[in-house]
Design a protein around this nucleic acid. Structure first.
Lengths: 122, 122
DNA sequence: CGGCATGTTCTACGATATGTAGAAGAACAA
DNA sequence: TTGTTCTTCTACATATCGTAGAACATGCCG
């Protein structure tokens, strides 16, 4: 189960919200530029690179190796990743019906509405 | 985010599937008795107790302190816990609608059916 | 009342994950 | 080829988890 640390999470968030593939340097700068509420962290580029390698090993990140400053990007969208995680969690329980029942109870009305729409007919 | 290790998971599974509160010794024996597919593990009781303490600290387990061999039980049902986890995962993404859309795509038809039923009226 | 069982807490050590980064190696521009 | 830039290797600190011995507590049996 791919659980992410704080920094790993921060990096993934940046990769997920940036349309373009990013270099380690760009990421380092982006992290320094007030990432969501955190203290602006001045990290060494090597730190970012290490994290990227680890994320790559986990299959969450891929990189363009040919372009010289390697450019990194996420393998899946945040939405796909999140949905996958949710599913992984769901299947850990034998009684999925019961889990879904409770899950439904925890979502907002708006989300319930969305679900109805998505589940549509049949 | 409460991520569980393998042994912690095993213990929770036992507590979740056993109606009665259990003592550390009972748990040790239950673990030794072929837990789901694993190699029968002969653990020291202290090991089980340590794990139970950690699970207690995480809020997943509570114990009856008055009865002398303390009896341990889960705080929530597995279904509640799982549903909670799913929700925690869901809210990590800004675009929940999109996540739900993908999530729906990943569930089985039977589960989709269940969801329709649950979402039924308005 | 004083040991003996039985049970709980403290302390600890190895393994893995993660944050962090220096040192060393590779590649490219001049 | 030499300096600059980037990547990889190696390393250390902290946290979590599996594992359990040592020490402490408690109640039962004589």
């Amino acid at each position: 189960m791919a659980t992410l640390g704080d920094l790993e999470r921060t990096v993934m968030d940046l990769l997920w919200t940036t349309p373009e593939a990013m270099t380690a340097n760009e990421l380092r700068d982006a992290i320094a530029e007030a990432p969501s509420g955190e203290v602006g962290r001045e990290l060494a580029v090597t730190t970012v690179l290490t994290v990227l390698s680890r994320l790559e090993k986990k299959g969450l990140v891929k990189r363009e190796r040919d372009s010289r400053p390697h450019r990194y990007m996420s393998v899946t969208s945040r939405e796909d990743h999140t949905a996958e995680l949710m599913h992984e969690v769901l299947v850990t329980a034998p009684d999925r019906e019961a889990v879904l029942a409770r899950f439904i109870g925890s979502v907002s009305e708006a989300e319930a509405q969305t679900l109805r729409k998505l589940l549509g007919g049949s």
